[in-house]
């Protein structure tokens, strides 16, 4: 799945940047890919209620179908930036919740002692796929063009769907309300769970602090280290799609190294401190990256930023899962 995600983001991000030349439209494209964040709480609650496996299968089937649409448009020469925006918006409704559901599956299936290692392993897997996905996506797009590159994206989405069928089924959580079953009952129960979860977060200082930090990172750090990279590659480094692929792969390689270190060492005994310290290091490195004009030094700075990012995010995910232990499913 991460291969397909990364190939898709790189190929389409580069296409939008080259075709429109506008950083605002590039940012719009990036935001459309995250449209599903608006429905994220409901995806989370639905995942808790129906099971991550079912939800992941549905989401991945939708992604496969939409990738096939772009493949056909690319191969027939009918692709325009408008089509890319439409499909990005539709894919974006389901795509951001895939990673969330993956982490939820870890919470469902791994005992608390092993959460840090399991999160690290999951991220190592995703990071290695990102490196390969970015480099392969850039290579295929440069060599074969968008249409043929999308044949591979579609195949990877279908493969991830097939593999998801192998995830163990989890029994459906019984609805605690004795009301008649149906969509209405589920909706009422889900909203109540969401409200309970919100109350739990607001009354648990550690969880509230981590949530604010996660929001801040998503607001200010991730746009710089991921969404704007096609602009940086084209405008700052005058690179092509392959150069963009190297930038993305460099950040992911740093993240992969950190994931391996976290898995090998079992993580830190002070995860909250680690989150704070490594988040600040990450920001400092991104600031430095903004001023770097040499491609090689830019790659190195992104690699270090990716390392700090991964240490911070693995520790944060483990802390969030630990802090939510015993809470209602809506937390």
């Amino acid at each position: 799945m991460s291969w397909a995600f990364e190939m898709e983001t790189l190929i389409l991000g580069w296409y939008v940047m080259v075709q429109t030349g506008s950083v605002l439209l590039l940012a719009t494209f990036g935001s459309l890919q995250l449209l599903g964040t608006l429905a994220a709480p409901m995806f989370g609650v639905l995942g808790d209620r129906l099971g991550g496996r079912t939800l992941l299968c549905v989401m991945r089937a939708i992604c496969s179908a939409l990738a096939a649409v772009l493949m056909v448009l690319g191969l027939t020469g009918w692709l325009t930036p408008l089509w890319v925006f439409v499909v990005a918006a539709l894919t974006g409704i389901v795509r951001p919740n895939d990673l969330v559901m993956r982490h939820a599956l870890i919470g469902e299936t791994i005992p608390p002692d092993g959460v840090m290692g399991a999160v690290g392993l999951s991220r190592a897997n995703a990071d290695s796929a990102r490196i390969a996905g970015a480099l392969v996506g850039a290579g295929l797009s440069t060599l074969l063009g968008l249409g043929y590159a999308y044949v591979f994206v579609t195949i990877f989405y279908l493969a991830s769907l097939a593999l998801t069928f192998g995830v163990a089924r989890r029994p459906v959580v019984p609805d605690p309300v004795e009301a008649p079953r149906g969509a209405g009952a589920l909706r009422t129960s889900s909203w109540r769970e969401l409200k309970d979860g919100l109350v739990y977060v607001l009354t648990t200082p550690r969880l509230l602090a981590l949530m604010w930090l996660a929001f801040l990172i998503n607001l200010t750090a991730y746009p710089v280290s991921s969404g704007l990279l096609p602009y940086v590659a084209r405008t700052v480094y005058r690179a092509d799609a392959t150069g963009l692929g190297w930038l993305v792969a460099s950040f992911s390689f740093g993240a992969l190294l950190a994931s391996i270190v976290m898995v090998a060492t079992g993580g830190t005994r002070h995860p909250e401190r680690t989150v704070l310290v490594h988040t600040m290091i990450w920001y400092a490195l991104l600031l430095a990256f903004g001023f770097v004009q040499t491609f090689g030094i830019g790659l190195l700075t992104l690699l270090l930023a990716g390392f700090a990012q991964s240490v911070a995010m693995i520790s944060m995910t483990a802390s969030l899962l630990a802090a939510s232990e015993g809470a209602s499913v809506g937390a």
Binding site: L34, T37, L38, A40, P41, M42, F43, G44, V45, G47, D48, P96, N97, V100, A104, G107, S190, E193, L194, G197, L198, Y200, V201, M211, A214, F215, N218, L320, S324, V329, G330, A331
Partner: peptide
């Protein structure tokens, strides 16, 4: 899980 996903906003 639901509320934790709000951070992605």
């Amino acid at each position: 899980m639901g509320v934790r996903t709000l951070a992605i906003y």
